[in-house]
Amino acid sequence: MSAETTPAAAAVSDVSLYDVDNPAPLIEAPRKRTKKTPKATRTNFELYGWLFMRLSGILLVVLVLGHLLIQLVLDGGVSKIGFAFVAGRWASPFWQAWDLLMLWLAMLHGANGLRTVINDYAERDTTRFWLKMLLYTATVFTVLLGTLVIFTFDPNIR
């Protein structure tokens, strides 16, 4: 095979197609800022999102695995759970704060993760837009409902 047939073949042989007078074509770096890059998207939002995924992840290891240990492993596993059990747990501000932090971090971490997934797979602009609107609505609703439930819990409801 001669070096002239394909550039790839030339690259592996020690004869180069390129020299000072005939330089190799320049390959532009991916996601390079160009004149066409809109000014409005130039914030560090994605960087902070990336960082948040990692920081919240570390906290969630303790919060969620601790929660599962209490709910599913200790003290008879799932058998013990009921209204009285919840009343006993939310009598303590410590567990209220635990659940509140877990609610917010897990929901924001999960929602930001799902935003990435939607951006990856929904190719049509309108589909992507509406899927994310659905996601944000469900997230805000769930976070507010969960917060309300923790703060207004009443052991003597009946």
Binding site: F83, V86, L103, T142, L145, G146, L148, V149, T152, F153, D154, I157, R158
Partner: peptide, 10 residues
């Protein structure tokens, strides 16, 4: 979170 919210129902 929806099922836990039932503690506010009864």
């Amino acid at each position: 979170v929806l099922d836990t919210a039932l503690v506010r129902v009864s």
